[in-house]
Design a protein around this nucleic acid. Structure first.
Lengths: 342, 342
DNA sequence: TTGAAAGCGCTAACAC
DNA sequence: GTGTTAGCGCTTTCAA
């Protein structure tokens, strides 16, 4: 059963192959009569163009490669959503590859995307293997590194200072008078590590002792993990006055564990999360957090890609700091139910 | 700046192009001496094969197309995770397209995937436009429809009865003696609709009046939406004895709203969710739910694709019912804190 | 084990 | 506005 090709359509419509090709790509450049005949033939035969052939012939793929560490995290779901939202209407296909938090897998992903001849790569993170960096540089494509700020961006860089955010979150707890402040994390990826650095820095600044709680093996952030880590801490008698969780999921788990153990938040213990996920505002008590801009990151990355592709001449290095915002809520309020700030 | 091609590698290595091709695809069939020379040349030139050319020449793409309604929902994230987990190690690329809950966009997605010459399509749902169905049938590829059970599967079908699950959840509430039972949903996609049908059926069976609460415009399930819908119901004085939410996120939102309004769950009101998301077991009170098998769905779909591809001759229609499980927990317990069932 | 020739299905560039 | 010609970069024969 041979596949229908453009030539089949052409002979059925009684035109040359190139006319069929034109009807498909720039219908305006073909007379209405022929266009109708061709479209008719396409329908009758159920013709579907072979993109591999078209890519090979035109050396355009209209494809953008996106690398994320996992599909298993709302943060990246929101980011991908935004990327799709901009790129699809602009006529691009998006290929998403996950690196499972491994730089080696990321390197393979890069090779695979380059092999596909993607026209740009949007990659979460700024830490890559030397070969990855080299490949990305040599590719002469728009490359966008996201979520973090790089000292030495490959090309475009849109992100925020994870370290500074970790610092601010910790500082928020310190300012509220707490001294025994714990840091909870599951998977210690580069971003979580930077937040931890910020935490250490803030604690050191005021001479407080750090109290890290890192899951014994890397696990993705979840409510269940938050419960577990908090329970472990509690059972070891290590109860802090305040907890900074790398993620709102962990924070929610910690809060639930508190409720189980009749610890009141924030009266007995304060909790702050990270990312300001959508449930955080309506949790009870509402959860303090650091609001990050996943959607805007994806949006801007996509837009930058489109303009870079349009400009055709490769643009220089460019960095955008999207920042973050401390969102104080009930879970870290000192006077019972209401945070100091509105 | 011309791209490096296989011919460039061949001339640098002093062999014919086909030898380079062989080194790349079946290194065993080339003598070690040549293999070394070729690999060396590849490295020096930074050669990356053009997959479009290879696909065109070989008419194999090693690509599986996956269509989901949204990337913005853990259910599909887990499912995609499982699909990747099986397909990537088997040497396939996975292309994920989202249809944004639209059958028209789904049709476009199908055309796009067929244009890519994917070797199989895994598609969430059983409702497609007539043309979509026709295209899928004519493609003579392994096609897997997932998450629901079809009366007339295109090819493979792995899912569960959403209607039956809705019925069982409702029945659970009825059995606990409740009469005023509300149904809460955001986006009324086909699966939510089937659950609603099951709810209606169960209510009708015992002569109870249905009480649907559907978001005025389609919105994806979220904790915030659950709060909102519940608040709306409360403010209209429509307070039920029990609520069946299409989704654990909605249920969590409803529970948080209860807490705000000093309604005790389950003493004043019972709540059951759907999907048994990971936080549900550790919510306070723990949330009753219907456990669904997203991971297994993806896993099995991928495995079926691989065997179908291996068998090479097209297999007949085949359906697998993965079922679901009622998980009663505190949120629907009648004697205070402990559910009847363990 | 290696190579030569032909072609996968489409489009760019140029003619008419 | 339409057609002709010549590839795009690989792999599939088939032959040596």
């Amino acid at each position: 059963m041979r596949r229908i090709t453009l030539d089949d359509v052409a002979s059925l419509a009684g035109v040359s192959p190139i006319t069929v090709s034109r009807v498909l790509r720039k219908p305006g450049s073909v007379s209405e009569a022929l266009r109708l005949r061709v479209n008719n033939a396409i329908e009758i035969l159920g013709y579907v163009p072979n993109v591999a052939a078209s890519r090979l012939a035109s050396s355009r793929t209209h494809t953008i490669g996106v690398i994320v560490p996992t599909l298993y995290n709302v943060i990246f779901a929101e980011y991908l959503f935004a990327l799709h939202e901009v790129l699809i209407p602009a006529g691009f296909q998006v290929i998403v590859v996950n690196s499972r938090y491994s730089e080696a897998e990321e390197e393979n992903a890069i090779k695979a995307l380059l092999g596909q001849r993607v026209e740009a790569i949007v990659i979460a993170g700024i830490h890559h293997t030397p070969l990855s960096r080299q490949l990305l540089k040599q590719a002469h494509l728009p490359i966008v590194e996201t979520f973090e700020l790089s000292d030495d961006p490959i090309n475009l860089n849109i992100g925020m200072s994870q370290e500074r955010a970790g610092h601010i979150a910790t500082r928020h707890l310190i300012d509220r008078g707490f001294q025994k402040i714990a840091f909870l994390t599951g998977n210690l990826d580069h971003r979580a590590q930077s937040r931890l650095d910020g935490y250490h820095e803030a604690m050191d600044e005021v001479g407080l002792k750090s109290l890290d709680m890192i899951a014994s093996r890397p696990r993705h952030s979840s409510v269940a993990l938050g419960s577990e880590l908090f329970a472990g801490m509690y059972e070891r008698g290590d109860l802090p006055e305040a907890v900074f969780c790398t993620d709102d999921n962990l924070a929610l788990g910690a809060m639930q564990e508190c409720r189980k153990r009749r610890l009141r938040v924030p009266d007995d213990i304060s909790i702050i999360g990270f990312h300001d996920l959508e449930f955080s505002a309506c949790a009870a008590p509402s959860l303090s957090s650091i609001a990050t801009r996943r959607y805007e990151t994806g949006m801007l990355a996509a837009e930058k890609v489109l303009t870079a592709l349009d400009a055709s001449t490769r643009q220089g290095v460019h960095q955008i700091n999207l920042g973050f915002a401390l969102v104080p809520r009930e879970s870290t309020s000192v006077d019972g139910r209401r945070p100091n700030l509105p």
